[in-house]
Write a protein that binds this DNA or RNA. Sequence first.
RNA 1: GGAGGGGUGUCCGAGUGGUUAAAGGAGGCGGACUGUAAAUCCGCUGGCUAAGCCUACGUUGGUUCGAAUCCAACCCCCUCCA
Length: 419
Amino acid sequence: MVMAGFKSDFLHTLAERGFIQQTSDDEALDRLLQKESVTGYIGFDPTAASLHAGSLIQIMLLYWFQRTGHRPISLMGGGTGMIGDPSFKDDARQLMTPQRIAENIASLKRVFSSYLTYGEAPGDALMLDNAEWLSGIEYIPFLRDVGRHFSVNRMLSFDSVRLRLDREQSLSFLEFNYMILQAYDFVELSRRHDCRLQMGGSDQWGNIVNGIDLGHRMGTPQLFALTSPLLTTASGAKMGKSADGAVWLNSELLSAYDFWQYWRNTEDADVSRFLKLYTPLPIDEIERLSTLGGSEINEVKKVLATEVTALLHGRHAAEEAAETARKTFEEGAFASTLPTIEVPSSELEAGVGMLALYVRAGLAASNGEMRRHVKGGAVRINDDAVSDDQRVIGADDVSSDGVVKLSLGKKKHVLVRPV
RNA sequence: GGAGGGGUGUCCGAGUGGUUAAAGGAGGCGGACUGUAAAUCCGCUGGCUAAGCCUACGUUGGUUCGAAUCCAACCCCCUCCA
């Protein structure tokens, strides 16, 4: 990588922060980005109701793209989502219903406005959906206009599908078409919005390059690719997974507090890298923070957590999460802003089994799991260890603060509030 | 369409009639140690109204006192042939 060589703000910033895996043409792209405001896009398939932390790097690419004077497009895969990207997947994805896709897209969209400014002014971001042009495609004309430009021989040679074939896993014709449609997206965006750059994770390289090739053959201006590295934590885990599965970006699926906690628990070895990738803090500030070691690094982790959370959920929510954590972990005190569930007072008067209550609070998936946790000494109610899984929680467990504090392990706490 | 191989728990992967809720590994969770980290060590890891019961080894039937294991049909995948 010729980091030192980048002159455009965008590529310079990206290189400095560790975003770049590869580009299709470093020099030409750099020149273009210096010369004019460029339009670029990243596609997001609606495979779930929310993006998770693993997609955050892609969103940050768009964020920096806009901040350095260019026009980002967030493209929802309403059309491609009907197929499912087979790249580097071992099995075919479950087909999603159109209704599900529509719901997911609606939900996905909510997050983007935290990072990008949408609108009509020059440089304002665009939110598009490829169903707009894909769903109306006619098969025969499409094959003649677009299909003829693809060589099956070549498509089979891409790692993204070759690995699948090498593993002797079936790749359906349906899925095989995914890369054609993604390539076509790029051409369509070039024509409709003068889009010149497609970005994405390194697993998208093949798909993106296909789009560039198709553009050549269909007469678009020169298109460009830029991919980001596939990120893992220093100890090798995939980004975005944690205790209860994915680290969702949508607040309905993961509270700002839990999101903050995820970043607070970053491994030491990742802190500096994550500050560069996931926060907008200036590089020299990050470098200063990175000199802190030992237990001082905990302060840096708080900065990381707060900055990442502030960008997504707003400064206020981020600071509230930080304060909740401070009270809970540093003072060992009680923070009324901890995650809370409400239970009718009448139910508490009658007494509720603790197993069921923990399950309701989302701290365990089943009573059986809770029984094991009790046996393992992981359970505390109002900070008192519990060893009896028959324990009933009643009105007299409600503390002077008006709640019951359920804890599982050292990190998970939920308040039960009678209503 | 023909021949052969295969479908096991979150994932990978053993198991070919009975102490099999199914070895082992990974992942996850909890505990200890720390710094709400990593590494390491220990424990847990299908559900329930729980010394019992239910669900589970592609699907549906069958053989048997008893099946993930045997039989039949079907579905899906792989390889070769057409």
